[in-house]
Amino acid sequence: MWMEMSENTTGKSARVKILFFAKARELSGFKESEIVVPVLISFIELKDQVIEIFNLETIRDIVILAVNEEFVEPDAFLKLTEKDEIAVIPPLSGGTSFS
């Protein structure tokens, strides 16, 4: 399934796969989905769109995104293709709970 984005973009759009983990998965209700986003997009714009569409407002300040299994810098500008895979990454909690 995929969702239509607003048409305020110049140039082409791409349909990309998006993955959700942990809290983000629970809030969006998806483990995996697809969105259509402009091919040229900044991290901030991409994050805004993802948060709006998938109802992630409550964790806006703590999530970051990964594209193709790489963390994205907050000031990055992305060039996406249809094959790309976006992941919504909540704060990590691997390892153990020792302080």
């Binding site: 942990a22 992941a87 990454i89 909540p90 990590l92 909690s93 691997g94």
Partner: peptide, 14 residues
């Protein structure tokens, strides 16, 4: 290594 895992490896605990 354990610090690095906790800092940057995408694993989550519930």
């Amino acid at each position: 290594t354990i610090d690095a895992i906790k800092s940057s490896v995408p694993i989550w605990k519930k």
